[in-house]
Design a protein around this nucleic acid. Structure first.
Lengths: 336, 336
DNA sequence: GTGAAAGCGCTAACAT
DNA sequence: ATGTTAGCGCTTTCAC
């Protein structure tokens, strides 16, 4: 067994109260006793028991993070930001892989509550009503990352509509006229609909028609990018560019085009979304609409912990087009 | 505030002991009182406080996981396995991003101790003496994943030497004679030296000379793969294949070759290591020596928790060559 | 400046 | 079958 505060007190000939005060930097002891106690602590290798401490002050200094999959390129970067900021503020983080499963999510929510975490960050998934209710019942601060909800829950995200508007405009400005889109999960009100809106808006603004055959749906994953790219190419023979709603789907598209011996960006330009590592590693390196994933994670815990004092609030993070090598500029002559 | 066991007891007209028994499935109450108590619990939405519970039984049902970076493709898959198995066994996991920093690692070790985790899994980093000492002092079970140490600590890993031996032999059998190697961090006794051993051994066994100019070092990351590939190509003009010590480095090599307009696998064959998602997404899809990362993670927590009973023990996991499209077979005639 | 003692929410003897 | 009670290791009044 480890030593307890009692052992320290006894050995230092003081009361546990004094040891506790010293440990917590509270006033009420002489410099001399402090020295002695610290000495004894070092000598015994005593470490306070955070569980006992947590039982009293109802703070565990740990956060719960719920995400669809820790091995997801996207989520893992967000997690990385969360973890770094948490560590900076002396918090620990419990990861919960929801697997996009409602049951599992609820089970985790319960575990997090029983373990008395001080807050929850919910990453990139649709925030169901039952989650909201459960969290309200636990009376815990929550913040959403890369998703939002109709409830009054603070979120950290990019303005998707604006971001794809900019991405598509970028393509338009480079002479592309027939632009396909590989969107996310069909019907997804958070990560799909607003993006399609942005796509349509960009087209309309420049006076170009919107053709629903130019929109294919995926699930943000690599495989679905392959399928969607095929679908798009089969249905349209004039495409010069494809806007993809995730880098992974863009990688899938790249993979399909490679297989078909269609050169990127010579024959078809591709633009991704997220700016994860896969965009860097793609061949050719992928031009993409970047989200500051890492900072979003950091921000999430800042906002989460701020709630303890003032009222926390949502923040829209800036997106940015990261130019690499998958977009070709089409000369005027060619387009006619 | 939430309700406590006391509230439940009062409302159900029983003692807290009875409630506790029911909660823990211990004998000692009638079916009738059980029903009633359960009813009250549901009604109040009572949830036990795991912190208080942990204070007593000295078990927190949480595990600590230390890894170099949660956003690492490799580590995140391992983490995913850990998380899944932990969840299956009703454990939570605290992630700790060590950033390969000794100070930070030690700080985490301390936090994990204070928070009374039931065990620690240490992923893919060099296991320093100070870590060992700290863990011994905490008297906690540990298990190493994809690394090992001179101390008596159980590990879960692949037999690297054998794995690259097989990978290089695979190349040899397909007619390659001048095979380069992009190894890991120079001097790394865990993930580099044994692999170089395997490479040399395969060459020697088939009677081929080992040429140190055919070995370049990286750091397992993408960028280093680019640099190392360039180095290899600059120093050798007869290379027909490169064995890479990680998929990311292989992706780097692929990227460099693409830039140089060297076709893979026509002109140069590439084989990676790990079989992470990057191998799947590579262009062309990467042939690689696969490690069962996910299973390794699962196994780690199994072994970790087994220690509670019998003695835990190390396990070597099987590797496997995953054939995709980056290795060409060279016809006899061509090689002459 | 320092200590005694009362809990935090729970489990586990020990009674009955 | 059920209740009483003594802690788990700590913080925090309240005395002195």
């Amino acid at each position: 067994m480890s030593y307890t505060i009692k052992d320290v007190a006894k050995k230092a000939n003081v009361s546990v109260a004094t040891v506790s005060r010293i440990l917590n930097n509270l006033p009420g002891y002489s410099e001399k006793t402090k020295e002695k106690v610290l000495e004894v602590i070092a000598e015994m290798g005593y470490q306070p028991n955070a569980i006992a401490r947590g039982l009293i002050n109802k703070k565990t200094k740990t956060l719960g993070v719920l995400l669809p999959a820790v091995s997801d390129t996207f989520a893992s970067v967000v997690l990385s930001g969360i973890e770094d900021m948490a560590h900076e503020l002396d918090y620990s983080v419990m990861v919960c892989n929801t697997d996009k499963d409602g049951k599992r999510t609820m089970k985790y929510l319960q575990a997090l509550r029983e373990k008395q975490v001080d807050g929850i960050v919910f990453v990139s998934e649709f925030f169901k009503e039952e989650y909201y209710n459960a969290i309200i019942a636990m009376n815990l601060p929550v913040v959403l990352v890369s998703t939002k909800s109709k409830y009054d829950v603070p979120f950290i995200k990019v303005d998707d509509k604006k971001a794809v508007f900019d991405g598509v405009t970028y393509l338009l400005e480079r002479g592309h006229r027939s632009i396909g889109m590989i969107a996310g999960t069909k019907g997804d009100p958070i990560a799909t609909l607003p993006r399609i809106e942005g796509y349509k808006r960009a087209l309309k603004e420049k006076g170009h028609p919107v053709d629903r055959r130019k929109i294919a749906f995926g699930d943000f994953g690599f495989e679905s990018g392959i399928t969607a790219a095929k679908e798009l190419l089969d249905k349209n023979d004039d495409l010069t560019a494809i806007f993809c709603s995730s880098d992974e789907m863009a990688a899938g598209a790249l993979s399909y085009l490679y297989r078909m011996s269609i050169r990127v960006p010579d024959q078809i330009s591709i633009i991704g979304y997220d700016n994860t590592k896969v965009a860097e590693m793609a061949i050719p390196p992928l031009t993409t609409v970047g989200q500051p994933l890492y900072e979003m994670g950091k921000n999430a815990v800042k906002v989460l912990l701020d709630r303890e004092t003032g009222e926390q609030q949502s923040v829209f993070m800036p997106h940015q087009i990261v130019e690499r090598e998958t977009v070709k500029v089409i000369e005027k002559e060619e387009t006619e």
